[in-house]
Design a protein around this nucleic acid. Structure first.
Length: 425
RNA sequence: GGAGAGGUGCCUGAGCGGUUGAAAGGGGCGGUCUCGAAAACCGUUGACCACGUUCGUGGUCCCAGGGUUCGAAUCCCUGCCUCUCCGCCA
């Protein structure tokens, strides 16, 4: 959420930012509602001040047992007037809030302006694409042949868009989770947390999934809970509504969770295999930092995430998203895309974004500055570190052999019984 | 699922319907003392909003939303949440 004061004082900047995010919000209407609200507020507060004065006097008169019926008569009218004005303020505030919650975060000045993914910019790349002396297969063919992926039976269980890992496939998934968390805790200094996989709507609002993304979420209406679409939601919300001490910052969390996404409207795209599924595992990095640290910390977070691919020796590139391709809450966002030879393309395995104080304002997440003792909003950010199925795809496709087996990346071998390859049985 | 208890400031915990933003203690911050620290003592310590250019003035907030009243943290209703016991259960 943007600060109404900021909007008031930067109307043009906000209009431009909103437009660059491909969003259409009537900012002028918001501004005029805001002005109206403040005028009403001034009016009703003057009357309330008067009421408070009189109430105090009544208290004193009562003590002296003096009659005050005539005052009551007058004050009844004052009370009614206040009620009417309060109602007006409440209604107009609701109207303002209904606009405000739909306004996206505005892109950082350093973020490229563009309408969609075709205008994202290349940042850097790493690694050498392997030269194959045979035609590289797609992960679903490799995995099914090895008996480690079973799409047909996954569909029997839950419909399309689900994965059944078996044997070394299941172990590979589990190994990756442990491997990634170990790197981030031991080497990068993140605190491991294991949060609930279901959250209240307040959490979903806090990180900005609600209201806009509601159709993409799995909801449990009986219990007013949502299945999390990413660990970002529970983890960023850990300190919702709190005022932290500056000395507690930055906080760095790493969490493994499954992620549930309806992927509404994306049917037909990437239906084959496990590039786009309704449930997937992910190791997520979340940072809470103080104002001013957001951008350097985002760069570090990006490096922490890409380290995983480097250790796994998987070639990748980094893309910076343009304004129109960024998510609702993001101010700046990098994607890490792993090379997948079987797809002859890149797969997004991580998205690293900073939200500045956008999420924090929604969830009331603040900190007290050590020196000034002032209360400020925390700056939040997160990035996948990394999303699992697509890393599995990249491993299967990059490490496949002519005989159909798959060599296990060295770094994962300790997590997989020191085996060197996944073979036919 | 059955039966109770309760939701007050950073925390614990008081609070007859009328100077209560809220006692007390703890914590935090500042100071005295000390070579330094601890202890002790003194002082201080909420957030948000509006208005007026520092500083101020006013308003709101005692889980949330309604209601009663001239006036509500204090009374009434609804909802939410937490805790305890029993049952069930990984």
């Amino acid at each position: 959420m943007l600060d109404i004061k900021f909007i008031r004082e930067n109307v043009d900047l906000v209009k431009r930012g909103v437009a660059n995010k491909n969003t259409d919000i009537d900012i002028d209407r918001l501004i005029s509602l805001d002005a109206k609200r403040r005028a009403l507020l001034a009016e009703v507060e003057t009357i309330k001040s008067y009421r408070n004065d009189v109430s105090k006097k009544i208290g004193l008169l009562k003590k002296e047992k003096k009659p005050c019926d005539d005052i009551f008569e007058e004050m009844k009218n004052v009370g009614d007037k206040i009620k009417v004005l309060d109602d007006e303020v409440r209604n107009i505030t609701m109207e303002i809030d209904n606009l405000l919650v739909w306004i996206p975060n505005i892109p950082h000045e350093s973020a490229p302006v563009g309408k969609d993914s075709t205008e994202n910019t290349f940042v850097r790349e790493w690694g050498q694409k392997r030269q194959f002396d045979f035609e590289p297969k797609a992960h679903y063919d490799i995995g099914e042949a090895l008996g480690i992926l079973d799409f047909e039976r996954a569909t029997k269980l839950s419909g399309s868009g689900f994965i059944l890992f078996k044997g070394m496939g299941a172990l590979l998934e589990r190994a990756l989770i442990n491997f990634m968390i170990d790197i981030h805790t031991a080497r990068h200094g993140y605190l491991e947390v294991s949060p609930p996989f279901m959250v209240k709507s307040a959490c979903m609002f806090g990180t900005g999934q609600l209201p806009k993304m509601e159709p993409d979420m799995y909801k449990l209406p009986e219990d007013d809970l949502f299945l999390i679409p990413t660990a970002e939601v529970p983890v960023t919300n850990i300190h919702r509504g709190e005022i932290l001490e500056e000395s507690e910052l930055p906080k760095r969390f790493v969490a493994y969770t499954p992620c549930y996404r309806r992927e509404a409207g994306s049917y037909g795209k990437e239906t084959r295999g496990m590039v786009r599924v309704h449930q997937f595992d992910k190791v997520e990095l979340v940072k809470l930092v103080k104002e001013g640290d957001a951008y350097p910390e985002l760069e570090k977070l990006l490096v922490d995430a890409e380290t995983i691919l480097q250790i796994l020796k998987l070639p990748y590139r980094i893309i910076e998203l343009c304004s129109g391709d960024m998510s609702f809450a993001a101010a700046k966002c990098y994607d890490i895309e792993a090379w997948a030879p079987g797809q002859n393309g890149y797969l997004e395995v991580s998205s690293c974004s900073t939200f500045e104080d956008f999420q924090a304002r929604r969830m009331g997440l603040r900190y007290r500055e050590a020196e000034s003792r002032k209360v400020k909003f925390v700056h939040t950010m997160n990035g996948s570190g990394l999303a699992l199925p697509r890393v599995v795809v990249a491993i299967l496709e990059n490490y496949q052999q002519a005989d159909g087996t798959v060599v296990i990346p060295e770094a994962l071998r300790p997590y997989m019984g020191n085996k060197e390859r996944i073979d036919l049985r």
